[in-house]
Design a protein around this nucleic acid. Structure first.
Lengths: 107, 107
DNA sequence: CGAATAGGTTAGCGTGGACTTACGCATTTG
DNA sequence: CAAATGCGTAAGTCCACGCTAACCTATTCG
């Protein structure tokens, strides 16, 4: 099984996951949101499926793709594992500094 | 400025960020944790720097790399924007189902 | 000053990934 | 049944990317 983090990071696949999070959709429906051709979207979906993030349910001549909750949970776990305590503290420090001294942001 | 999400997704760079989160380090110190050569690590650091995630402080003949809190905060924002409400609900549903009916997990 | 250390830069290589075009297969519909 | 629809797959192209080897610069130390 592929690395969920890497699979989900690609911009097109990121959007695909967001679109599918709102509910199941067919490949053609999804492809309408992109400039890329339908086969390209189909291949992206295959990558996501290989990472266990989406699955397809066959229904007539349609293929309804939907998100796999367990896969999304695993992706979440990967993100959380990456997002260590140290990084969390750094962000907390950064946002605190930004709200306290907004103009000290010399570019 | 490059996409922080994509930059941080690459496995080697993911580890670099985690190592740097624990505190500033030189390129050689970082390179010890990998099988890749030092120039490779140096290039990964350049990618992270281009994404605004790390910065280098020159000190003698050493370059101490460290994480940029503001960049990490922006990465966090990108992740949060990706992690929409729908995805959150799916995960909540998945974990709930897993803890409630553990054996219904037919592979 | 010359050797050694730290590290950025370049050129070039190989691979993978994103993409398109073309095709094949199933399913529905007239 | 024939045309049309929905979609996966194969083949081929192109480019970005990760990597190494080689080189160059700056700094420290004998």
């Amino acid at each position: 099984m592929a690395d969920a983090f890497s699979a989900a990071a690609e911009p097109t696949r990121r959007r695909l996951l967001q679109l599918l999070a709102a509910g199941p959709k067919t490949v053609s429906e999804l492809a309408e949101h992109f400039t890329a051709t339908r086969p390209a979207i189909s291949q992206h979906l295959a990558v996501l499926a290989d990472a266990g993030l989406v699955t397809a349910r066959k229904e007539g001549r349609h293929r309804h793709y939907s998100v796999v909750p367990a896969g999304i949970a695993q992706l979440r776990a990967e993100i959380d594992r990456f997002w260590s305590t140290e990084l969390e503290l750094l962000v907390a420090d950064a946002t605190k500094r930004a709200t306290t001294h907004p103009e000290e942001h010399h570019s």
